[in-house]
Amino acid sequence: MLSIENVTSAYGRIEVLHGVTLHVEVGEIVTLIGANGAGKTTLLHAISGVQPITGGTIKFAGMPIEKRPAHARVAFGISQVPEGRQLFAPLSVKDNLRLGAWLRRGADLKSDIARICALFPMLESMWEKPAGALSGGQQQMLAIGRALMAKPRLLLLDEPSMGLAPNMVDHVLSVIRALKDDGLTILLVEQNAPAALAIADRAYVLETGRVALSGTAADIKADRRVREAYLGL
């Protein structure tokens, strides 16, 4: 569904992605693990079109998209839940969700909103509250809900467990798995490698802008270097 070949990207003159190649197949959860500064967020931004790339190709459903603007990529079916949630803090929970469906405005959103509320029941009681007033866990739920409102085919998740209480992390992971069971394809960036590898089908290890290792989640989990560097074993 998504295939990235030899993508390079830079901030000014400093290249941070040195030719990344990876692919995500329909229905998979693929996780991208790596240390801080490895380029995980940059890669997700490049896929969403908010970070320019200096070389390589990005294909979505067989179609090259690297020259298309960010909003066109959302329309194709790529949604992102960005790192640090990035909600519209002054707007209400309801408005954040409605704006998630910005490209489908005019459509009947009742069933979509009902679906989000079923997934995250705690959002309903906060309906009219500004997003900035929500707790960290609630904000993450809302950020995922907002991305789902665009009806994506591919969901990019950037550090969804960051800063959450352990029981909240479990909840988010179970939601991700439920979304996969519903047929959504997911590319998950995580620093919490054990959690990510527990639910992923395949994994890539990104080190300083390069793919250092790739394979099935089970293989990666068993790799000696990964166990030392990321799993703390």
């Binding site: 969403s48 079109g49 908010v50 960010a70 909003h71 959302v74 329309a75 949604s79 992102q80 960005p82 990035q86 909600l87 519209f88 803090a89 002054p90 707007l91 704006l99 998630g100 910005w102 490209l103 907002r146 991305a147 409102m149 665009a150």
Partner: peptide, 10 residues
């Protein structure tokens, strides 16, 4: 409020 997020939702 958040230009990055605005672009990411299309």
């Amino acid at each position: 409020a958040n230009r990055l997020a605005a672009r990411l939702i299309g």
